[in-house]
Amino acid sequence: MITAGLDVSSNNIGWSINIDGKYSCGTFSSKSVLIAERGYHYQQWLFHFLCGNHDGVRRGPKIQKLAMEEPLPSNRMRREVSEGGMFDNKIVERFKPMTSMASLRGAYGFAFVTMVTAHIARVPMMEINVQKWRHDFLGFRTKNTDDFGRPFKDKGARTEYYKAKAIARCEQLGLTPDTHDAAEAVGVNFCLDGLIQKEALSRRVATAKEKAEALFSSPG
């Protein structure tokens, strides 16, 4: 089966493809400053990618199953506390969205473009949670400390750690991803392949169980 994985954002699109057990990966990006135009360029590229034009020149086999990283929830809020004005010592507490509207348009808009394009190309598609593919590909869902047991100083440091781990894991597989987006797409692809194998094994076990039950329940 020819499978593919995507790490989707409004800036860079990491992609991975597995043909006969051999992975390759790369990054698609549009130079347009307009998000709508970037979305259009992505849709055009993705359709050709799914239909077999994997590297922009050579026509290869059509993708048979696609997975993309599930967009993060948009309802997360952050708490902000501030003091009142000069004549008011009252503490003011506010809750604001953690994600900007521009980021939401990119994350959910490009995810929707992915779903629609896969439907048009008649390629089955699924979403995979970030913690699920990290568990299968990197061996952990989330981390509070680095490899030396030191706590991350902030969210940015944790994110950079995840990126570095994805790239290092790809290098173990003999790949040289050009961006962390490409490395993370390989993780999504790797997780998809594991789910497909698990499903196939479950079907084989169920078939063997049915045959055994039929054999022992038959008369004589």
Results as ranks from 00 to 15, higher is better:
residue 2 I to D: 04
residue 4 A to P: 01
residue 9 S to F: 03
residue 15 W to D: 10
residue 16 S to K: 02
residue 23 Y to K: 03
residue 23 Y to N: 05
residue 24 S to R: 13
residue 26 G to Y: 01
residue 26 G to I: 00
residue 32 S to C: 05
residue 48 H to G: 09
residue 48 H to E: 14
residue 53 N to A: 11
residue 55 D to W: 15
residue 59 R to D: 10
residue 59 R to E: 10
residue 59 R to Y: 11
residue 66 L to C: 04
residue 66 L to W: 12
residue 68 M to K: 13
residue 72 L to P: 00
residue 76 R to F: 14
residue 77 M to C: 12
residue 79 R to W: 13
residue 79 R to F: 13
residue 79 R to G: 05
residue 81 V to F: 09
residue 83 E to L: 14
residue 84 G to P: 15
residue 85 G to V: 07
residue 93 E to I: 15
residue 98 M to I: 15
residue 99 T to N: 05
residue 103 S to H: 10
residue 104 L to T: 08
residue 108 Y to M: 06
residue 108 Y to C: 03
residue 113 V to N: 10
residue 115 M to N: 07
residue 119 H to N: 14
residue 121 A to L: 04
residue 121 A to M: 05
residue 122 R to W: 02
residue 128 I to Q: 08
residue 130 V to G: 11
residue 131 Q to T: 11
residue 137 F to E: 03
residue 143 K to I: 03
residue 153 K to P: 00
residue 155 K to S: 07
residue 155 K to T: 10
residue 157 A to Q: 13
residue 158 R to E: 02
residue 161 Y to R: 00
residue 164 A to Q: 05
residue 164 A to C: 01
residue 164 A to Y: 00
residue 178 D to F: 06
residue 179 T to R: 02
residue 184 E to H: 03
residue 184 E to M: 10
residue 184 E to W: 02
residue 185 A to D: 08
residue 186 V to S: 09
residue 189 N to T: 07
residue 190 F to L: 04
residue 191 C to P: 02
residue 192 L to A: 10
residue 196 I to N: 02
residue 199 E to S: 10
residue 199 E to C: 03
residue 204 R to D: 14
residue 208 A to G: 03
residue 208 A to N: 08
residue 213 E to P: 04
